[in-house]
């Protein structure tokens, strides 16, 4: 088998071919929005009954309990667990995926559980800037107002009619997490959506 680090040097992110457009596609001004792809994050899918010993084992291994409620994320030791469903989570982490999968499988013990490396399933597009929420609100049916969608909230919903995870990491920073196969569509939609937020004076220039 080929060495993993050699293969990692060869890999391409789902938005590799749009890197220039994404880098230059942001707008400045009062309602500035910048786009960026955060490629190759470790993403591990966890499915386990929330009230089981296995779930508690995984809580301990992660250092923060898996969230038991919609929208909530829990963060500890470089891992962030996102609630996707009552028995399903996505752990985004700085730990290499194979290591984390092994740790969590061991932590689940004998409880029937599924721990899978899903890093290649989705990519992350980050929107930063004061206009980020307005851009997302053009195509997302969920309520993203800060009174309900606080920092650290993440939900499964849709953007531009395709399923994505929308995750607010900071007051002006949102992560949109689409499937790899839909990433180019979502990125193209976002690039178009941010254009109207450019300062008016710049348009005639």
């Amino acid at each position: 088998m080929a060495d993993l680090s050699t293969l990692q040097g060869l890999r391409r992110s789902p938005l590799h071919d749009m890197a220039t457009e994404i880098r230059d596609g942001g707008v400045t001004g009062e309602r500035a929005v910048q786009l960026a792809e955060l490629p190759f994050l470790t993403q591990v899918g966890v499915r386990v009954a929330p009230d089981s010993a296995g779930a508690r084992g995984i809580d301990e291994a992660l250092g923060a309990p898996l969230p038991r409620k919609v929208g909530v994320t829990s963060q500890a030791g470089g891992h962030t667990a996102l609630w996707l469903g009552p028995d399903e989570w996505l752990v985004v982490s700085e730990t290499p995926a194979d290591e984390l999968v092994e740790q969590l499988r061991a932590a689940a013990g004998d409880t029937p559980a599924q721990v899978l490396d899903l890093s290649a399933n989705r990519t992350v597009i980050e929107l930063t800037g004061p206009g980020a929420r307005s851009v997302l609100e053009k195509g997302c049916p969920a309520d993203l107002h800060p009174r309900v969608f606080t920092d650290g909230t993440a939900i499964v919903t849709s953007l531009a009619r395709v399923p994505v995870i929308v995750w607010r990491t900071d007051a002006d920073a949102f992560r949109v997490v689409p499937r790899a196969s839909l990433a180019q569509y979502v990125a193209a939609w976002l690039l178009d959506a941010v254009r109207e937020f450019a300062p008016v004076a710049a348009e005639g220039a």
């Binding site: 469903g85 009552p86 399903e88 939900i155 499964v156 919903t157 849709s158 399923p163």
Partner: peptide, 12 residues
């Protein structure tokens, strides 16, 4: 009384 599935969310 009807069944619904939240396909665009938790899939339950």
């Amino acid at each position: 009384a009807e069944r619904w599935v939240h396909t665009g969310g938790c899939r339950k």
